[in-house]
Design a protein around this nucleic acid. Structure first.
Length: 421
RNA sequence: GCGGGUGUAGCUCAGUUGGUUAGAGCGUCAGAUUGUGGAUCUGGAUGCCGCGGGUUCAAAUCCCGUCACUCGCCCCA
């Protein structure tokens, strides 16, 4: 075959076998999040470009080189959303959701777009389930938010996950730490990688997360003070509260001093969940607290916390763990017909049964019985109804149980009750 | 943006130091005395050997380019 078109780089088709898994995961996520009091919000897939550049941070990698930005016909700069939080914050403000009792708990399921080089677990379009809770600064809310994802993952049967935790400080204490880092790193910048030399100036926190051996060395062996030593009193007690909350909620975690996230809006709590089953991209969930974003977007000062997890990565973990999700794709009835009038009768019967929600299939050509039986078997139909001249004459079908092979005659009008509904 | 690997049937892959009609398994379609599936057997169909160029009497095979996929760096879900 000479394909004229292929899907764009970094995108993929999710085929029926896999959509069943996606559907199941989304259902579980919705149930769990509803039980935690979250309601679904559907925000646009594209927004004004400024929303992201201001929200995510003008120097972040995502904004500087990974956004799908385009001009519309009136010359407005729009961008396909690279993440979900900025749009939800915008919607929260624009629709006056701050008048609802706090905390306002929202979740979304949708595609995110980033112009990245594709590799295992990384696509240019990926689907995220995300959560945002507005209007409470309680550490127990942070703990509960983390517990919500963990609950989803547990319900799906995931194992081998680690939840990592850090506090990157607030407006009060973080600048002092970044200043310390900057000074220290500029003094000793000879060992830093090219990227980090720039980061030392612009965003020294990111160096903590650098994977270059030389930078790791400087970070680990340089007796560098940790952010934790610079945390202000509020941040310390908040972080303690979080750990306490996680204990109450029975969520295991690991502290990770060098956990920093790629969006500039985070304050205080940051967290990620990693799976050993993924390739180089081991994070399946990431999130944290962002107490300044709402007022940066023009609202009242409103503390908030949220996370997002990626469905593609989640599914690959599920597959790697060989977890069989309870996805049913069997057929209730396959109708085999012999002869033209039998085919028309089959068409009619199938339509009647489908009204009551039965999954019914048939073929639309006059084929021999053997071939139709094979098809019924391939489609995993539990029951097969056979209609030939004899059945038409008597007003019945021959109903065959495909599991044990037994057969019986069932009147047309009784077929529905025979199928249990 | 930077590196490594791979492109042969719908899928997984084989294809010998370049040599004539390019193969296997799975799947698909048809059939095995005519109204009964899963097993087995028989037969059929399907390939611009990713694309373009070059070397050669001769290229799936060697060289260059290109595109795509893939893995990693970066970043992130």
């Amino acid at each position: 075959m000479n394909l004229k078109y292929t899907s764009p780089r970094g995108t993929k088709d999710v085929l029926p076998e896999e959509t069943a898994k996606w559907r199941y995961i989304k259902t579980v996520a919705r149930q769990v999040l509803n039980s935690f009091g979250y309601e679904e919000i559907i925000a646009p897939m594209f927004e004004h470009t400024d929303l992201f550049t201001r929200g995510i941070g003008e120097t972040s990698d995502i904004v500087t080189k990974e956004m799908y930005t385009f001009l519309d016909k009136k010359g407005r700069s729009l961008t396909l959303r690279p993440e979900g939080t900025a749009g939800v914050v915008r919607a929260y403000l624009q629709n006056g959701l701050y008048t609802l009792p706090a905390p306002v708990k929202l979740f979304y399921i949708g595609s995110m777009f980033r112009y990245e080089r594709p590799q295992a677990g990384r696509y240019r379009e990926h689907v995220q389930v995300g959560v945002e809770a507005f209007g409470s600064d309680s550490a127990y809310l942070d703990a509960e938010v983390i517990s919500a994802v963990v609950t989803i993952f547990t319900k799906l049967g995931l194992t081998g996950l680690t939840t990592q935790l850090n506090s990157i400080g607030c407006k009060e204490c973080r600048p002092k730490y970044t200043e310390f880092l900057r000074e220290h790193l500029i003094k000793n910048n000879s060992g830093l990688c090219e990227n980090c030399k720039v980061r030392a100036e612009k965003n020294p926190l990111r160096i903590l997360d650098c994977k270059e051996e030389s930078c790791k060395k400087i970070v680990n062996e340089g007796k560098l003070s940790k952010m934790s030593e610079y945390l202000c009193g509020n941040c310390v007690s908040h972080f303690d509260g979080l750990k306490d909350g996680l204990k109450i909620l029975k969520v295991n975690y690991k502290l990770n001093d060098s956990l920093v996230r790629g969006f500039d809006y985070y304050t205080g709590t940051v967290f990620e969940v990693h799976s050993e089953k993924l390739g180089a991209q081991t994070a399946i969930m990431g999130g944290g607290r962002y107490n300044n974003l709402v007022d940066e977007f023009g609202g009242e000062k409103t503390p908030a916390v949220g996370f997002g997890f990626g469905l593609e990565r989640l599914v690959s973990v599920i597959d790697a763990l060989e977890i069989k999700l309870p996805v049913e794709n069997t057929l209730d009835l396959f109708i085999v017909h012999l002869g033209f009038s039998a085919m028309k009768k089959a068409l009619e019967l199938a339509a009647e049964l489908r009204v009551s929600g039965k999954r019914v299939q048939m073929v639309y050509e006059e084929k021999n019985i053997k071939s139709q039986m094979k098809t019924a078997d391939a489609l995993k139909s539990g029951l097969v109804a056979i209609i030939g001249d004899n059945e038409l004459r008597d007003g019945v079908v021959t109903l065959k149980n495909m599991v044990n092979g037994s057969q019986k005659q069932v009147k047309f009008e009784n077929l529905k009750t025979e199928l249990g509904g």
